[in-house]
């Protein structure tokens, strides 16, 4: 079985045209690089098309491309890349979709309407990278405390933080004994 990625490249190109930035291939793993504008349409197509049937979203994550070495800058038209890892149960094949998001406005449409699994994954990306997912049902921090400032996995975030661990409002949260 498996998916005919050559044919898929053609179909995607026909359907989404200028949205497609590149295809990558490494040892049989395929990646689709797109602009972020119509990301939900792209993902919906990949999920529903009988030739692909990527019904499972295994992961949503993000890459910060700040200050990449020159050799790698080519493949990174914007600062952030939101990465969707898709899996097709039917064809037993995987695809990595990268959608590039600029620093300002740092926004992309939410895929939570397509896969329930995207809900928490996108919250994590929001928490740690500060990407705003438009239309997300519940965009709150998921790992860091609710009153945390900043997005610690951004490359311009200092390694030892900005004083959060010394200054978080610890005492006020204790009930009077």
């Amino acid at each position: 079985m498996g998916i005919d990625f050559k044919a898929l490249q053609e179909t995607v190109k026909q359907r989404f045209g200028e949205q497609v930035l590149a295809w990558s291939e490494f040892r049989g793993q395929y990646g689709l690089h797109v602009k972020s504008g119509r990301i939900v349409e792209v993902l919906r197509f990949l999920r529903d098309d009988p030739a692909t049937k990527f019904v499972m979203l295994t992961d949503v994550t993000c890459v910060d491309g700040l200050k990449l070495p020159e050799t790698m800058e080519q493949g990174f038209p914007e600062r952030f890349a939101v990465v969707y890892h898709l899996y097709s149960l039917e064809h037993n094949d995987r695809l990595r979709v990268k959608a590039f998001v600029p620093e300002d406005p740092c926004e992309i449409d939410s895929a939570a309407g397509l896969w329930a699994a995207a809900n928490w994954g996108e919250r994590e990306v929001f928490d740690l990278f500060g990407i705003n997912f438009r239309g997300h049902p519940d965009l709150r921090r998921i790992l860091m405390p609710a009153n945390y400032e900043g997005h610690p996995l951004r490359k311009d975030y200092p390694l030892k933080g900005r004083g959060e661990r010394d200054n978080f409002p610890k005492y006020t949260e204790i009930p009077e004994a």
Partner: peptide
């Protein structure tokens, strides 16, 4: 972690 510390303080209290 700073998210755990309030929990620790509360349990300690």
């Amino acid at each position: 972690s700073i998210k755990m510390m309030p929990v620790l303080i509360e349990i300690y209290n």
